[in-house]
Design a protein around this nucleic acid. Structure first.
Lengths: 110, 110
DNA sequence: CAACAAGTTCGATCGCGATCGAACCCACGG
DNA sequence: CCGTGGGTTCGATCGCGATCGAACTTGTTG
């Protein structure tokens, strides 16, 4: 807490918070659950998706934890769509900070 | 042991073993020590460097462990240069499997 | 051939992160 | 104005991975 982090509780459109150091981004993407979340957002229209649509077989609290990690890595942000909370993938911001990384990871058909 | 892994003890030039799934590659790069190792190899001429030149403040056994992780992720391979063991970064193989990833990660001046 | 240097393997320890359940918050809809 | 659904926070547990030291392997050199 008391971080410089943009912890604003859904300020509408939080103007793309800064992307964290590579190390943090890599750690965030290294988890299978989170990578899947990122993939689903990337596939969604507007890179935005309902929280519940981003996971399948884990508890709500665990999912929320992963959301937080992704957010703190600067990969995603919160958005409110008609009163319903959504997670949005900051494609452009990440692409600007680490060009080529996301496309590469997302196309990883390994 | 008894894996399908190319555990060949320095066969001269192990013809670029296959790059592991994205998930594994990301996990390998997520560790600060390993990322630094990769950076040093990338900066070395021919992407090849003596093992001892790749780390600073950790034990030999720990370093060896990290070499193994990198190797099993398909990021590096062993080479023998005049009887001295070296680690070589498989730039081209990784670039072929995950184009843009390494350049992006290596230039991460975050 | 014997000694040594450089990596690897093995076994054990330790801390961090993934996970869960319960309690809490907040925005809507009756 | 109170109930309900969807996320978040909190506290505790558990397993995996990072680390180390010691023993082993191998290849080079005196």
């Amino acid at each position: 807490m008391a971080e410089t982090e943009a912890c604003s509780p859904v300020p509408g459109l939080a103007a793309t918070a800064a992307v964290a150091p590579v190390q943090v981004v890599l750690a965030a993407l290294a988890d299978p659950v989170r990578l899947e979340m990122v993939r689903r957002m990337a596939a969604a229209p507007g890179r935005t998706e309902r929280c519940a649509a981003l996971y399948d077989d884990i508890g709500k609290s665990t999912a929320s934890h992963h959301f937080k990690v992704l957010r703190e890595a600067g990969l995603t942000e919160r958005t409110s769509v008609g009163g319903v909370l959504h997670q949005r993938l900051c494609l452009d911001a990440v692409e600007a900070a680490l060009p080529g990384l996301l496309p590469s990871v997302l196309s990883g058909l390994d």
